[in-house]
Design a protein around this nucleic acid. Structure first.
Lengths: 132, 132
DNA sequence: AGTACCGGTTCCAGTAACTGGAAGGTCAAG
DNA sequence: CTTGACCTTCCAGTTACTGGAACCGGTACT
């Protein structure tokens, strides 16, 4: 199967698939004409990558998960550990964004937002603000 | 004032300050020895940048905010518009992360996480999963 | 045979916002 | 006079791709 079909069936752009090969996530065979040739197994790998990436795993996480996927003697605890670490990371990001949101919302709420130059948002950024 | 002091008083690493200069956010004077020389006004600009970045504004947002900061005839509505757009963006990111968190939490909760190879997380990523 | 066109190939550059490190100049202190 | 802290510039690396150029393969139509 050519890269175009592999792309359509995995949901990954062809450019991305070539990139994953470049960084060593998979190595499809080559046809006589030099075209990449994807087996069903390769396709499973690509779909696996697409799902893992869309769940927020980094490419490096994916590298580990993929090797666990291929390792029939894996321990599910190893997989769970990666997923739990990612969960902690996501929670941290959410908390940070919620904090930002609060501060920004506070500023926006205090700015009249008209044609006058007086602006509490600028004041706060300048350090003369009402927040904190 | 040398870059080290400007760094200490703005909370920005010296490397970052040089970078901001390179991309045109500020242009401090130079002393006779070639060292950058930061005025009090420059320092205010740096503090402004530090606060704006920590509130989640992109460097490009900062460029606009900084020019509004220096524009005494600005309209507060312009500033508010930037802040509100950022707020929408933050809300979008939070929603996305919360969605990810839900899916990942669901997977983690179903994985026993022991020495056995059977793993619902891997199964789901492979497309044979219980989720969806 | 010629040509049009789609899809494949490689390689180079750019994105966001820094960060690390190398090689070298400056300055104050001992 | 040397040590060490601090400054300078420039180059490379980070994350995960994405766009584009230049070129080759394969098929269909005339």
């Amino acid at each position: 199967m050519n890269i175009g079909d592999a792309s359509a069936q995995s949901g990954l752009p062809a450019k991305t698939i070539r990139y994953y090969e470049e960084i060593g996530l998979l190595k499809p065979g080559r046809a006589g004409n030099g075209y990449r040739d994807y087996s069903v197994k390769d396709l499973h790998g690509l779909r696996f990558l697409q799902r893992a990436r869309s769940l927020g795993f980094s490419v490096d996480d994916c590298r580990q998960l993929l090797s666990l996927y291929h390792d029939k003697a894996r321990e599910s605890a190893d997989v769970k550990a990666i997923a739990e670490a990612k969960l902690v990371e996501i929670d941290r990001k959410i908390a940070e964004l919620v904090g930002l949101r609060g501060a920004l919302h506070h500023l926006v709420a205090h700015c009249h937002g008209d044609e006058r130059p007086d602006c509490p948002i600028i004041d706060e950024l300048a350090g003369h603000g009402l927040v904190q």
